[in-house]
Design a binder for these strands. Sequence first.
DNA 1: CGAGTAAACTAACACTTGTTAGTTTGTTTG
DNA 2: CAAACAAACTAACAAGTGTTAGTTTACTCG
Lengths: 189, 189
Amino acid sequence: MKTETRQQEIIRVAAKLFKEKGYSAVTMRDLAKAMGIKAASLYNHINSKQDILNTIIISLAEEFTEGMKQISTSNDTCIEKLKKIIQLHVNISSKNSYGMASLNNDWMHLETQRTYYKKLRSDYENDFKTILEDGIKAGEIVNAKPDVMMFSILTTLRSLYIWIPKKEDLSLEELTNTLSQILIKGINK
Amino acid sequence: MKTETRQQEIIRVAAKLFKEKGYSAVTMRDLAKAMGIKAASLYNHINSKQDILNTIIISLAEEFTEGMKQISTSNDTCIEKLKKIIQLHVNISSKNSYGMASLNNDWMHLETQRTYYKKLRSDYENDFKTILEDGIKAGEIVNAKPDVMMFSILTTLRSLYIWIPKKEDLSLEELTNTLSQILIKGINK
DNA sequence: CGAGTAAACTAACACTTGTTAGTTTGTTTG
DNA sequence: CAAACAAACTAACAAGTGTTAGTTTACTCG
């Protein structure tokens, strides 16, 4: 049993507040109050507000990068790869829905790490698009604009963090399956 | 030829800044600088920062409400209605991509109007879900969870504001058609 | 017991925030 | 020309911002 350090606890609570109001609207005094201490005491555990955001976002972004690397280099079919991408998003979003809010909405408030973040995101999207293009060539996927397909799928996956916490009755496996069906086969009968 | 009032100009520029950094991170001095005047001068034209946000969000939300009312009370088939919803989102998002950012990301910073906004949104989603449920009953739509279907489609549509300005080569009609195809028939071949 | 340490505290800082009051400028209109 | 007005300005405010310095508290362990 791994116990959470005080620092990790602060970052976790910060992510929760960031999700509710956004990075800029959360003050260090808000965060301190949520922790039950004074603002100055936070600095025994963390370096700066910006550092908290860095930690939240970059660790998540790297988790996606790593997942995508495994998927894109596998020997699966394109459709199989897509299902694994969906699974990756469902897993990470359910484990850390608070952090996902910062990743999606507050990356522009990164300072030193913004360029690095944007590179990770751009690499991820390129890998995604390549999978779709390969699927079109292989005849697995309908020949529509890969840009639009990726946009459609990815924005749905990126919004899972809002949706998953509201639907705790739905198992993650069930959600992954339903989503795969809808995103791949559509809703048409 | 209708000329823009100074007030409308301020609101338009504010929406642009809000899209880039979020409501909380944009200061009245930022806004003034973008307008080429001093912060105090803004108050000759607007009442408060909060008022700007109200105007941006509520006018858009009401535009969606009105569009949905027309669609949901029509005699179209469910699939036809869905296509019209997609068209509604494409149209509004292309006309006002800046405002859509505030609608999506900064509604929680509304003060007096937050409850009203949430009612509009909730009504909209209920109408949307009813259309899907009717489609399932009528056998037009696959029998999957309407919640998940709506979530998937609606999050894609809600993110159009990010995507449309980047792809000016794509005509709105073409985008509407491609999106309809992908969202309804899926990407599977 | 005494030393070390984790984690809280108070007080203060320099700066930024939204906003108000009162004034000046330049253009339009009777 | 004189009056009216739109729209800018300077100066200032009270409150809130992230952060630092230095101190106190309470628990752990040799």
